[in-house]
Computed example of a mutant assay.
Amino acid sequence: MAGTLSSMTGFGRADGAAGAARWTWEVRSVNGKGLDVRVRLPGGLESLEAVCRETAGKLFARGNITIGLSYQRGQGDAVPRINEAALNAVLAALETIRRRVPDAAPVGLDGILSQRGVIEWAEPEEGAAEKEALGSALRASLEGALAALAEMRRSEGRAIAEVLAGQLAEIARLTALAEAAPCRQPEAIRARLATQVEALAGASVALDPARLHQEAALLATKADIREELDRLVAHVNAATVLLDAGGPVGRKLDFLAQEFNREANTLCSKSNGTELTAVGLELKTVIDQMREQIQNLE
């Protein structure tokens, strides 16, 4: 059974509140070569950037992660305050108008107070305890959003692990099929070599018997795929161990996928029969599909 793997794509969200403040954390993750954390915070809360990076760094090893905070401060506890400068400017303007238009109707208090900037809503000064409580609540909901992202990445990772396990089983099956290919049987190899040696002998009457023997040995060596088959089996075992171990194994699996592809290419180039070539091409198809899945793993 495969261990716990994580993909590099996912989404997490968490809402929070403290006093009159309301906020929402949203975190997104996509594939990346390493861990890249980008943070977008509203003015006045920039000090949380270090917390965001540190918390994400503890949970994730790879991925391009974007952390965003939407923050709203309600006016439930706000108190009105007269902006003296704005009020003086409005009164001065009204006095100027009164002098120029003596018959103009006087402006009442409601009209004066309704002018923009005359009344401001000010938040009460927060004490150290309130600030600490707000910071704790923001950090807690951040951790919740990142935990939701981590769980989504693990869920996708479990699905990818199942697909990879099936692809490894298919590679093992194809490797065994190549092992048993009729064209690899000693009788078939001898018959093919005999035909090639006969062609070589007929090409030149002066062909030295020792040289003929060397050519036959070279043909036999080129047709031997024993090492490729053994390495394919070893790579399947190594990949299975990584899946069972779980964790951030994407880079190691990607390296193994390259090795799988190398062996499949060599098998195709050494093939001495159409059935073996067909197996080699099918191997390459499965390996390419496996690499696509591995690219999504942490």
Rank of each mutant, 00 (worst) to 15 (best):
R139T: 15
M152N: 02
R116H: 12
R100W: 09
A137R: 09
T96E: 15
A133T: 15
L146V: 08
A150L: 11
E143K: 10
A92M: 01
E126I: 05
L138F: 03
G135L: 07
E95L: 12
A140E: 13
G108F: 07
G127H: 08
V101I: 08
L146D: 04
L109W: 01
E132G: 09
G117M: 03
R153I: 06
E143P: 07
L91V: 15
L142Y: 12
M152H: 05
P102L: 06
A129T: 13
L91Y: 09
L146N: 03
A147L: 15
R99I: 10
A137N: 04
R153A: 02
P124T: 07
A128W: 00
L149Q: 10
G108Y: 07
A137W: 02
E130Y: 05
A104T: 04
E126D: 03
A129N: 09
E123Q: 10
K131M: 12
R116E: 14
S141H: 13
L113C: 01
A148C: 14
L113M: 06
L134I: 04
E95R: 15
R99G: 15
G111C: 00
P102A: 09
K131W: 10
R100M: 10
R116V: 11
A85G: 13
L91P: 07
A140S: 13
A133E: 14
E126R: 14
V101K: 01
A147S: 15
A85E: 15
A89P: 08
D103T: 11
A128C: 00
P102I: 03
N88R: 15
A93V: 05
S114R: 11
L113K: 01
L134H: 05
G144Q: 12
R99N: 14
A148W: 13
V101N: 03
E125I: 12
A150T: 08
P124R: 10
E143C: 11
E151W: 07
A133S: 14
R153D: 06
L94S: 03
P102V: 06
R98N: 04
L138H: 01
A92E: 06
G117S: 00
A122F: 06
A122L: 12
S114H: 07
R98E: 08
L113G: 01
R139V: 11
G108T: 08
A148T: 13
D103K: 09
L113N: 00
Q115Y: 02
L113S: 01
A140N: 09
L142R: 11
G144I: 09
L142D: 12
A93P: 02
A140M: 08
G111L: 00
K131N: 14
E125Y: 05
L138E: 01
L146Y: 05
A85F: 10
T96S: 14
R139Y: 03
